[in-house]
């Protein structure tokens, strides 16, 4: 029988059985990983960003080792690739892309959105990032700000630490986390209020 003709659910069950029989991964481990992946969402990354905005020591730890900083907030990172965090500053804006496939910081942002996987985004993010950001996202990077496009090509995953918007003095971590969106942590947008 051709493998392509096999119903996918039967194929999946067979692979899972083989993984268990060969002692590579138990059914419970696979279920746990599926549950962790399903639970991950941009809200987790947003909590990390908000904490970094109010706590300079946490910000330093986040920039040093993103995965450790995530685990500090109870976000499970076991078995995930290392997480690097790139900070936007008054001089530099960062944009994350994976031109080769769709590498994405799933542990802290969840499943990649459809546009992140599109050929159009992947090509234009490296070739014409300022044009793409302005036309597709209404994100205009001023001429005096340097743009760094981070092509996530190998074993690391990358997340952007955006700048805290003006007008948020005195806000709680919860209030701050609520304004941080998925795109802000990839660099296609920046956090705004109101």
């Amino acid at each position: 029988m051709n493998i392509l003709d096999t119903p996918s659910d039967r194929l999946l069950a067979a692979v899972r059985d083989l993984l268990a029989q060969k002692g590579i991964a138990t059914t419970a481990e696979i279920q746990e990983r599926i549950a962790i992946t399903d639970r991950a969402s941009p809200g987790q990354g947003a909590r990390m960003v908000a904490k970094a905005w109010v706590d300079p020591a946490y910000r330093a730890r986040l920039l040093d080792d993103g995965a450790k900083a995530a685990e500090e907030l109870g976000i499970p990172m076991r078995g995930m690739p290392p997480l690097g965090v790139l900070e936007n500053t008054p001089d530099t804006h960062n944009l994350v892309v994976c031109t080769l496939c769709s590498c994405y910081p799933r542990g802290v942002l969840g499943y990649p959105p459809f546009w992140y996987k599109s050929a159009a985004f992947r090509a234009r993010a490296v070739r014409d990032p300022r044009g793409m950001l302005a036309e597709e996202w209404k994100t205009v990077i001023p001429d005096d700000i340097r743009l760094t496009v981070v092509d996530s090509t190998a074993d690391y995953r990358w997340m952007v630490l955006p700048m805290r918007p003006d007008g948020t003095d005195g806000w709680s971590e919860e209030q701050l986390a609520a304004i941080v969106r998925e795109g802000d942590m990839i660099g296609v947008t920046v956090p705004t209020i109101g």
């Binding site: 790139l86 490296v126 990032p129 300022r130 340097r146 743009l147 760094t148 496009v149 981070v150 092509d151 996530s152 090509t153 190998a154 074993d155 690391y156």
Partner: peptide, 9 residues
């Protein structure tokens, strides 16, 4: 001034 930051073995 713009840059690309890429992981290379």
């Amino acid at each position: 001034d713009d840059a690309l930051l890429v992981e290379i073995f």
